[in-house]
Design a protein around this nucleic acid. Structure first.
Length: 268
DNA sequence: ATGGTAGCGCTGCTA
């Protein structure tokens, strides 16, 4: 079973590219972030024609997350449920059961700047994510929490730690909040299976950052132990970004996927 | 990196 995550930076702008990529990469589950679509504008039928059921939480202009699945879609939940949402209801988390796997697609708040009100909201949101996970799942469940975390877990995960000193995405409180989520029982599986530096998933559109290698690894697959044991292979798919020019309108993020052996997994 | 791009949508915000 292949599970992918991709911050597409507007599904309206990227729909054709996503559809093409689905046919090429053939994920069983795709988690999307930054659809930038309202709830009703999500192209449910067009994904259905490619064999995917879907669940979307959208608010229009910003944010928006979704889960697409070829292997069933049940127990869906939009947002934090009954828990207080530090963002006041932004479309940043959606949950579903896909075949033998529980899936959570997240788009963590950016934070803007250290000390900014949005930075505190980011930290609170991460703690609420941990609470949400602990209320619904156990570390023994087959669970993947995936998406754009807007945190580079380690200095290896930014192109220049020196230049990021004092910035968001690398600050200790953000990394600590991510670590608390991992300490509940999740592994950053792509890092676990790839020890090299610079396996980046995001490059700013500006200043030719992609071609200069100015990237970050902020799109993560966090998996419980049963899923980690079942993971056979992972890939940060830079192929579209390498082969597309500016006129082809690539996303500023790449897709990241893992293949797992589902024998022995049982979401219930 | 301190804003040179992109997206949304029509003015400036967000990333």
């Amino acid at each position: 079973m292949r599970i992918a995550t991709w911050n597409v930076n507007s599904l309206r702008a990227r729909l054709g590219r996503v559809q093409t990529w689905l046919d090429e990469a053939m994920p069983d589950v795709l988690c999307l972030q930054e659809t930038k679509l309202s709830q009703n504008d999500f192209p449910t039928e067009s994904f259905a024609s490619q064999g995917y059921e879907s669940i979307h939480v959208g608010q229009g202009r910003w944010n928006g997350v979704a889960i697409l699945s070829k292997v069933g879609l049940s127990n869906t939940e939009r947002g934090f449920g009954g828990l207080e949402d530090p963002t006041g209801g932004e479309a940043r988390i959606v949950t579903a059961q896909c075949g033998p796997l529980n899936v959570v697609s997240v788009y963590v708040p950016n934070g803007r700047e250290l000390g900014h009100e949005q930075y505190d909201i980011k930290l609170a949101w991460l703690d609420q994510l941990r609470t949400f996970l602990s209320e619904r799942f156990t570390p023994g469940d087959p669970l993947i929490v995936t998406g754009d975390f807007n945190i580079a877990p380690d200095d290896r995960d930014v192109w220049s730690p020196k230049r990021f000193a004092g910035k968001t995405h690398v600050s200790q409180p953000e990394r600590d909040a991510l670590q608390r989520i991992k300490d509940w029982g999740l592994t950053d599986i792509v890092r676990d299976r790839n020890d090299e530096d610079r396996i980046f998933t995001f490059w700013d559109y500006r200043m030719g950052a992609f071609h200069r290698g100015w990237g970050m690894r902020i799109d993560l697959h966090l998996v419980t132990k049963p899923v980690a044991s079942a993971t056979r292979w992972s890939l940060v798919d830079t192929y579209p970004r390498r082969t597309l020019g500016r006129d082809d309108k690539p996303s500023d993020h790449t897709a990241v996927f893992i293949d797992i052996d589902t024998a022995g997994l049982d979401a219930d």
